[in-house]
Simulated scan of single mutants.
Amino acid sequence: MSYLGYLIAAYAVFVIVLAWDFFATQLQIRRQLRNARLRASREAARISRNELTR
């Protein structure tokens, strides 16, 4: 009785889950950085608009 198939499948699932975790985290970081940049640009535009109206 050989467990080779089970072992290969277990390692394959491990690698797939590990890769998914890495890429999902990278996408989340990218999304949060984009949101922070957009928020900062909106804040800068709001401040410059307020300075022009003074």
Rank of each mutant, 00 (worst) to 15 (best):
F22W: 07
W20R: 11
R34L: 15
D21R: 13
E43G: 02
S48A: 15
D21N: 12
W20F: 14
A24C: 13
G5I: 03
F14I: 05
E43W: 02
R34E: 15
Y3C: 05
L18Q: 08
R42L: 11
A45Q: 08
S48D: 14
L7H: 05
M1F: 10
F22C: 03
I8H: 03
L18D: 07
I8C: 01
V17K: 01
R54T: 08
M1H: 10
R46A: 08
R46V: 00
Y3Q: 08
F23W: 07
L38S: 02
L4P: 01
T25K: 14
R46T: 02
D21H: 11
N35H: 08
R37S: 09
R37L: 12
S2K: 06
W20E: 08
R31Y: 11
Q32R: 10
R42W: 10
Q28F: 13
Y3W: 05
Q26N: 09
L38Y: 02
L18G: 11
G5V: 04
A24Y: 14
R31W: 10
N35V: 00
Q32T: 05
Y3H: 04
Y6L: 12
R30H: 14
I16C: 14
T25H: 12
E43F: 04
R49V: 03
R39H: 01
A45T: 02
Q32H: 07
R31H: 13
M1D: 11
A10T: 05
Q28T: 09
A9G: 07
F23K: 03
R34N: 15
M1Q: 11
A9P: 00
F23Y: 08
F14R: 00
G5H: 06
F22N: 02
F14V: 03
V17E: 03
A19Q: 02
